[in-house]
Computed example of a mutant assay.
Amino acid sequence: EARSAARRVIIHAYDDGTPDNRGITLAGYGPITRHTAEELQRDARRRVNALSELADPDTAAARRHTPSEALARFCRGRDGTCVFPGCQTSAEKSDLDHIVPFDHDHPDQGGHTTCDDLGTLCRFHHRLKTDGVWAYYRETDGSYVWIHGPHHPDRDPATRITTFPTGPFAGHAAPRHPEASRLQREAAEAGETGFGSAESRRRPHLRHRRDVERRNLRAQARLWRQAPQTGPVSPPTPSTPLSDEEPPF
Rank of each mutant, 00 (worst) to 15 (best):
E69M: 06
E53L: 14
R76I: 07
C87M: 09
E69W: 06
A135N: 02
I99N: 00
A44D: 07
E69C: 03
R123E: 09
R76V: 04
P101W: 03
T59A: 10
E92L: 15
A50W: 11
G119H: 04
L96I: 04
K129L: 08
D103V: 03
D97R: 10
R46D: 00
V133Y: 06
R64Y: 02
G110C: 04
S52D: 15
P57M: 13
C82D: 11
A135L: 01
A50K: 15
T130N: 04
F102V: 04
P57A: 11
R34T: 08
Q109R: 13
H112S: 14
H104N: 12
W134L: 13
V83I: 15
S68E: 11
S90P: 05
D117H: 10
T59H: 14
G132T: 07
E53Q: 14
A44I: 02
C87Y: 05
R76Y: 07
C122H: 10
L118G: 08
T36S: 12
K93I: 02
D117T: 14
D97L: 07
D56Q: 12
H112M: 02
R78C: 15
A44F: 04
S52R: 11
R123S: 14
T113W: 07
R47E: 11
R63F: 00
D43R: 09
D56S: 12
Q88G: 00
